[in-house]
Design a binder for these strands. Structure first.
Lengths: 110, 110
DNA sequence: CCATTATATAGCTATATAGTAATATGGTCA
DNA sequence: TGACCATATTACTATATAGCTATATAATGG
């Protein structure tokens, strides 16, 4: 899986996918989906975002393949496509903890 | 390491870090640093980007903690802080391959 | 000191996009 | 059919930022 080098087109694709994740509102939506599928209205209620805004974020996440949609009558239920998102979040959280640790160490030694 | 839930402040921090990665030019710079440290001029040559542009990207990567800097005389040498970036890229590459596979499958069955 | 080179920053323009209000689309039920 | 709901889309504004040019900062050699 590990690549020695990444061609420009691949970098562009990766960047495009990451861009879909690099938004607090979208991460919040994905975080809500962690416990199961939700309708748009439910996501509006639980996130406090506007309906149009949630819908737009969901289209972006859908386009980037991070969520899947199931239509049932008048409702659209969204669910996580997989858990890659949280693997990425865990890596970032690890970074944040490392940074916090480094800061503590710096403070103690000063 | 896995979290059951992520508080809003953490989501904002994660999004901010991801944003630093979600740019083809910056991924390209990081990709170049994969084989070792490089000066700004070297990065300008190898990426084909403008000097001011490279410098700005490097400040962003430095601020987000993805690279470290070593100053020697009139030069600034940048190197990767760690390899988390490529773990993230690998996850995204895996997604891209899965998507390509799904597309192929779809085409074949149609 | 001055010229030169390397890096960083400031100011600018063009583009992308988050958020909102209004509207469109489409299903459901009386 | 027509009223009502959930969702999607459009049009707009405000903000962020990639990339550029010009300039500032800083080290080094003459």
């Amino acid at each position: 899986m590990a690549r020695s080098t990444l061609p420009p087109e691949m970098l562009a694709l990766i960047a495009h996918r990451l861009r879909a994740l690099a938004e607090p509102a979208r991460l919040g939506i994905l975080n809500q989906l962690r416990t199961g599928e939700r309708s748009v209205t439910e996501l509006v209620e639980v996130t406090g975002l506007g309906q149009a805004n949630v819908s737009k974020h969901l289209q972006i996440l859908l386009g980037a393949g991070f969520v899947r949609r199931r239509k049932e009558g008048v409702h659209s239920y969204y669910r996580l496509a997989d858990h890659d998102v949280f693997r990425v979040c865990d890596i970032m959280c690890g970074r944040l903890e490392a940074e916090a640790g480094a800061r503590r160490k710096l403070l103690r030694s000063s």
